[in-house]
Every structure is written in structure tokens, then in C-alpha cells.
Computed example of a mutant assay.
Amino acid sequence: MRIDIITVVPGLLEGPFSHSILKRAEDKGIAKVRVHNLRDYSSFKQKQVDDYAFGGGAGMVLMVDPIAKCIEFLKSEREYDEVIYMTPDGKTFNQQMANELSLKGNLIILCGHYKGVDERVRQKWISREISIGDFVLSGGELAAAVVADAIIRLIPGVLNDETSAMTDSFQDGLLAPPVYTRPSEYEGMKVPEVLLSGHQSKIDSWRFEASVRRTKERRPDLLEGKGLEGDFSK
């Protein structure tokens, strides 16, 4: 997979992709992330990429021309499955969307900034609009990093344990159960005995019930229509 991110603030994305799992994916040749400075595609001497909105009002708007030039340049070099625009009014990102996008080949992510992009960009070039929540950031860069991280970690070979990503919260519509490691007792707090028993079927049952219980307590909306009305209070 290759993810190309278009931004007016490329420095914001230097850290997330040079460490941890994302760096490992790059080193293994499994996934690449490339950041493109939108100002490099400006036709103006001062590298301007924004202008005032027609009709007035506060805030600047990213212009069509530099965005179109950048996207068309990238498309001339390879095929892309999606051109994604990060925007507060996009569809809310979730695990199911991450799973779907992780099966794609190449992606372009356009980061919104200021008051957003000229609507004609969205009409002609964007195939999917994504939001990471009902709030507004200074730009789409941090949101793009979140989406890229969630996608890339699902690609086979990125994580050391191939099954790890499949047991994360939301993969089965439930929150993940509590987890423990050594020591088995700390200041009187003990690890549930079933987790030390070695009986995998009992452990699996405990984890499922703990997942349902935690989901009921913290995200009951996730259980709607799942038919999990039993008593998981223990």
C-alpha cells in the first residue's frame, strides 16, 4: 500500500510516520506514506494556495488549481483506489471503514485547512470524505495520521502478532476485555483466576463476557440489535 498525503503543513506529519508501527511497515516494504506540500503546486510566486471566500465571511479557502495539479500529478504516476478528503462533515471513521480501506492498494488523503477546500475539488476529485469525530481541528493533518495508522496496522505483516489487530476493540462490534500481565498480584489486586487456569475455552468465554459487560457499561449503543441481553454482570 502507498498513501500520499497532501497538506499545507507537512511538518505536522513528520513525527507520526517516522516511529513505531508505521516506521516498521515502511522498513518492511509493506506500506509507504509520502507527504506532499501543496505549496509546491502553486502557480503563484509567493506559493499562495488559499484565497478569500466568494460571498465574504471569515477564513480562507484552499484553491482548486494547486490541489488539482497535485492530484493529477500523483495519478499520472500510479493508480489510486480512493482520493479521501479529511473534513468535519465527512462520514465518521470507524473500525469497519479501517478494515475496508486496509484492503485497498493506493490512497490519496487530502488534508483540509482554514475553512476547507473549494467545493469543486470535492465534486470532481474526491471519492470519499472522512471525519474522525464531531469536533474541529486546525487542519486535517492529525486526522490523516490517525486514519493512516488505523489502516496500515491492519495490513498482514505489519504487526508482529498477525492476530493482534483482529482482537482489538470494535473488530467484533464490542469493546476489548480487560488485559493483565505479570505480576499476578499487585498490592492485593489479583488477576482473575480463569486467566491463569490454562483452559482456553474458559478463558475465551470469560473474555467474551467481559467484552459484553464493558461494552454495556461504556458503549451500550454498540449492542443495539445484537441480541446480547443476558446477564453478564459477574
Score class of each variant (00 low, 15 high):
residue 70 C to I: 10
residue 116 G to T: 05
residue 120 R to D: 08
residue 69 K to D: 15
residue 99 N to L: 10
residue 103 L to V: 03
residue 102 S to G: 04
residue 94 N to T: 10
residue 134 D to T: 10
residue 101 L to C: 01
residue 101 L to Y: 05
residue 90 G to A: 04
residue 77 E to V: 09
residue 101 L to V: 02
residue 91 K to N: 14
residue 81 D to M: 06
residue 70 C to P: 08
residue 100 E to D: 12
residue 111 C to V: 09
residue 91 K to S: 14
residue 114 Y to D: 08
residue 130 I to F: 01
residue 137 L to Q: 11
residue 80 Y to L: 05
residue 77 E to Q: 15
residue 133 G to H: 09
residue 127 S to T: 15
residue 112 G to K: 02
residue 81 D to N: 13
residue 103 L to C: 11
residue 124 K to D: 10
residue 99 N to V: 06
residue 121 V to W: 00
residue 111 C to T: 14
residue 118 D to S: 12
residue 138 S to R: 09
residue 76 S to T: 08
residue 122 R to G: 12
residue 117 V to E: 00
residue 132 I to E: 05
residue 132 I to F: 09
residue 124 K to Q: 11
residue 116 G to H: 02
residue 83 V to P: 03
residue 90 G to C: 06
residue 131 S to R: 07
residue 131 S to C: 09
residue 101 L to D: 00
residue 76 S to A: 13
residue 94 N to R: 11
residue 119 E to W: 07
residue 102 S to E: 04
residue 111 C to M: 08
residue 99 N to M: 14
residue 134 D to E: 15
residue 108 I to F: 03
residue 115 K to R: 12
residue 69 K to T: 14
residue 95 Q to K: 06
residue 109 I to S: 02
residue 79 E to T: 12
residue 83 V to A: 02
residue 112 G to L: 05
residue 94 N to E: 12
residue 114 Y to T: 07
residue 100 E to Y: 08
residue 90 G to F: 03
residue 97 M to N: 00
residue 99 N to I: 06
residue 98 A to H: 02
residue 121 V to N: 03
residue 88 P to C: 09
residue 133 G to W: 06
residue 104 K to D: 01
residue 89 D to R: 13
residue 79 E to F: 10
residue 68 A to H: 13
residue 95 Q to C: 02
residue 134 D to N: 15
residue 96 Q to L: 11
residue 94 N to W: 09
residue 113 H to G: 12
residue 83 V to G: 01
residue 75 K to R: 15
residue 81 D to L: 06
residue 70 C to V: 12
residue 128 R to L: 15
residue 123 Q to V: 09
residue 93 F to R: 04
residue 128 R to H: 11
residue 128 R to Y: 07
residue 71 I to L: 11
residue 80 Y to F: 15
residue 119 E to H: 13
residue 103 L to A: 10
residue 91 K to P: 01
residue 119 E to L: 09
residue 80 Y to H: 07
residue 119 E to Q: 14
residue 128 R to V: 01
residue 78 R to C: 10
residue 91 K to Y: 09
residue 104 K to Q: 10
residue 77 E to Y: 04
residue 74 L to E: 06
